[in-house]
């Protein structure tokens, strides 16, 4: 099989973990692992990546000081043309999702996104993806090509120890003209609120299954009785029922409470990423097939609007 080219991802001076996950996967698939690092003053990243790759290509240029999807696309296109890898792995992240489809069309290569597992069948990747909010899996059949592009879900596989020591090769920036159609301006940090849910011991976490804003006081009463803080899914934050800083998940906070009580949360992977490190997870959901039950220790399959009031009564009794 051909080389596997892995795009390194970094942001605000930090190498993102997904890079090591992708390199670990590439190592498992066999073949030569080539990492591509686009950045400015990124020697220490290159050193770290070398432990996971047979070769590290570094383009060190101010153009890549901050991420610009269109600049990344232009560089990747040239490097894929010259390196001719058999497979390109890119994180299916806020950066990767800004590049993959356009890059593949530019090069006329078959591609898919948000893979949760990849195997090689000869020279062809066999990719598994999830459909319908994680309720079913599907496998992808690619058209024959010399190179395939796959966007890999973050945290789908753990990063290993590495154990390689690839050579680091600096190459010239293949993008010779400035990208003018789109410019990076600045980062704006997420707002900080009154409660830091990353420090909470107990969390009552609510999802779209609470149905209406007017059910929030019931959830607050439960949390109050338990001495828990309230958090929620993105759906609830989008609806304006909770402030942004209470959102658990990939685009919110990562929490590790002693108890995570999930009420009417389906368990989309973007949510689960943020709470799977909790000590004890209890889920109440009307749908027995909700993926959240895969991550919970205890579950109740019922209408939360019936179970929560009963639980409130029980806790009041217990307190006497």
């Amino acid at each position: 099989m051909g080389d596997i080219l892995v795009l390194a991802e970094h942001r605000q001076g930090e190498l993102r973990e997904v890079t090591l996950e992708l390199l670990t996967l590439a190592g498992q698939l066999g073949g030569n692992v080539v990492a591509l690092l686009l950045g400015s003053g990124v020697d220490d990243f290159a050193g770290k990546i070398a432990g996971y790759a047979d070769k590290v290509l570094v383009v060190d240029d101010p153009m890549f000081a901050n991420f610009n999807g269109m600049a990344y696309q232009a560089a990747l296109a040239e490097i894929i043309k010259s390196e001719k890898p058999g497979l390109v792995l890119i994180g299916n992240t806020g950066q990767g999702m800004d590049v993959i489809g356009a890059l593949a069309v530019e090069l006329g290569l078959p591609f898919t996104t948000d893979a949760v597992a990849v195997k090689m069948e000869g020279d062809k990747p066999e990719v598994t993806r999830q459909y319908y909010g994680g309720k079913i899996d599907g496998t992808i059949d690619f058209k024959d090509a010399d190179t395939y592009i796959v966007g890999m879900r973050e945290a789908a596989i753990p990063a290993g120890e590495g154990g390689k020591s690839g050579e680091v090769a600096k190459i010239d920036n293949p993008v010779t003209s400035e990208i003018t159609a789109r410019k990076f301006l600045e980062y704006v940090e997420a707002a900080i609120g009154d409660v830091d849910i990353t420090q909470s011991t107990l969390l009552v976490s609510v999802g779209r299954g609470i149905r209406e804003d007017k059910n929030m006081p019931m959830m607050e009463e439960l949390a109050g009785l338990m001495g828990a803080d309230i958090s929620g899914s993105r759906a609830v934050v989008d609806a304006g029922w909770l402030p942004t800083d209470r959102q658990v998940g990939i685009s919110g906070k990562t929490v590790k409470p002693k108890l995570y009580l999930a009420l009417g949360i389906s368990g989309a992977f973007q949510h689960v990423t943020g709470m799977k490190g909790s000590d004890l997870v209890v889920a109440i959901n009307k749908d027995p097939d909700a993926p959240i039950f895969q991550y919970a220790d205890y579950g109740i399959v019922d209408d939360l609007l019936k179970v929560v009031p009963a639980l409130i009564d029980k806790l009041k009794e217990m307190k006497g």
Partner: peptide
Amino acid sequence: SCAIMAQYSVPEVGELAEILEGDPGTTSA
């Protein structure tokens, strides 16, 4: 198409939660 979904399957899942059975009074207790 360049990459079609060829075959759906039921996902293999790890251990599921222990489900508490009964009416809301029982499960909440």
